[in-house]
Write a protein that binds this DNA or RNA. Structure first.
Lengths: 161, 161
DNA sequence: TTAAATGCAAATCGTTTGCATCTGT
DNA sequence: ACAGATGCAAACGATTTGCATTTAA
């Protein structure tokens, strides 16, 4: 039961369908989220949204993200690498994925695997757990950074001092 | 290659072995972490440590946690349920596990599965990624809370309003 | 018309930092 | 002796909140 043109379901429609108001700020924010590929944090979102409408307020950004999160239209991430401890958000897509965060270059890669679904089913079955949100974060060194490091000589257990 | 008495390897020994000083504050903090089963956040840790030595300072707690994290002696978690957005820490144990956080009762359960290791191996192989830290968080409803909810009639998609 | 949503500014909260002092080694 | 570690208090940055005002339905 979808529109004729297989258009990406709009976040705004989802909100309206649930009885929330279609305010101009929400339109701007939701479009920004949908347009941006990848992840956004609150500051990014505010910045981008203001390019469309300079009047969007920080508080509205947070309130909107919170709403989307509660409606499970976006997922909240706590990526391991970026030192500043802010949350990131991404539209909830079709398939679950792992985020691979490289500690060296900071790149984030999404990785899809059938094991994710197997793990979820196992958890649901063995624990009677109703899974609502799943967050898989892995930190380490990506292939490129490993190569670069070994070129510079060895790959000594990084000192923590 | 272990001690004769199969004693749990001490965090303090690990620090000393790496050349860090065995200060009295560290002794208290590390023992507290090792004694506590489960997870701690900085505030918990401070509180518990002060029961042993009232002079431990908040800054020292954070500095110590940061050190342990960098040495990968503890894992930092960002549990999905507890609303206050603080990090939690746990000793790095033998096997990786998923944290199942119940949104209703707040309970956190650890779940071990062979799929975790399979997923890790797949990631390492297919991406040439050197995995240092893994964080698996799942949020939802635990068996008990589901049962309690359905007893109260239905299990309506929780409204986000 | 009126409940919901927003803007603004102040407040909150976890965490970090500068700097003087102390303490393992 | 001296680099490393701590305590203290102030600073910080992300997020949240109270309240008066605006706006979608």
């Amino acid at each position: 039961m979808r529109a004729l043109h297989p258009k990406r379901p709009s976040l705004l429609d989802a909100l309206v369908a649930k009885g929330f108001r279609a305010t101009s700020q929400r339109k701007v924010l939701l479009e920004t989220i949908q347009t941006a590929e990848g992840r956004l944090n609150a500051a990014n979102l505010l910045h981008l949204a203001r390019q469309r409408d300079p009047h969007v307020d920080r508080a509205t950004v947070y309130r909107t993200l919170d709403l989307l999160k509660r409606l499970r239209l976006v997922d909240e991430l706590d990526l391991m690498h970026p030192s500043g401890e802010k949350h990131h958000y991404e539209m909830r897509g079709a398939r679950d994925h792992v985020h691979l965060a490289c500690f060296s270059c900071g790149a984030i890669k999404e990785f899809v695997s059938p094991f994710i679904d197997r793990l979820k089913r196992q958890i649901a079955r063995q624990n009677g757990f109703d899974i609502r949100v799943i967050r898989l974060e892995i930190g380490g060194r990506c292939r490129d950074c490993r190569a670069a490091a070994s070129k510079r000589g060895g790959d000594p257990e990084q000192s923590a001092k």
